[in-house]
Amino acid sequence: MSDTANKASPHGAHDEHGDPYAHIHVSSWQTLVAVFVALVLLTSLTVYVATYDIGRFELAVAMGIATIKCALVMGFFMHLKYDRALNRMVFLGSILFFTLFLGITVIDLDSSKPDIESYRRENPVKTAPATEESKPSGEATKPGDPKKSGEPGQHQKQK
């Protein structure tokens, strides 16, 4: 798991010119396969959980599982576990700014929710504007449509 690719350079042999090879972490294939299996299991878990109605925790659970998968990919496939601390900092910096971006937007949205709700009460959605207006899209009656053309339902589209 922690073997390095330094096969041909005992220290000191090249001390004037520096090591001709960088010290690179090489992952063992067993580690890679184990991570892949864990990722597949977590994917199955998230699909399985989604078939149950668990209410408002649904999004939190789905995002939690995705975050664990993300950590596995980053730690092992992207070598972040063995990488320089600087690269970890660079990555965490992006997460920090992502959180700021999303967090401040959500706070702003939250504070304008009363306005949004009163606007909605005053302007309810009446009919189906999209289906009424976008009818002559032409796509419905394309002759090349293998599934629909010639089926009895087709005629009803001309309302």
Binding site: T127, T131, S134, K135, P152, G153
Partner: peptide, 29 residues
Amino acid sequence: ANYSAALHQGPEWLEEHGVDIHSHAPIPE
């Protein structure tokens, strides 16, 4: 505004929603 799912549904979906697919009547609202 390009969303137009009701217009593109297959006969199974329409039957499920109580439309007689053999009549040429317009899709009920």
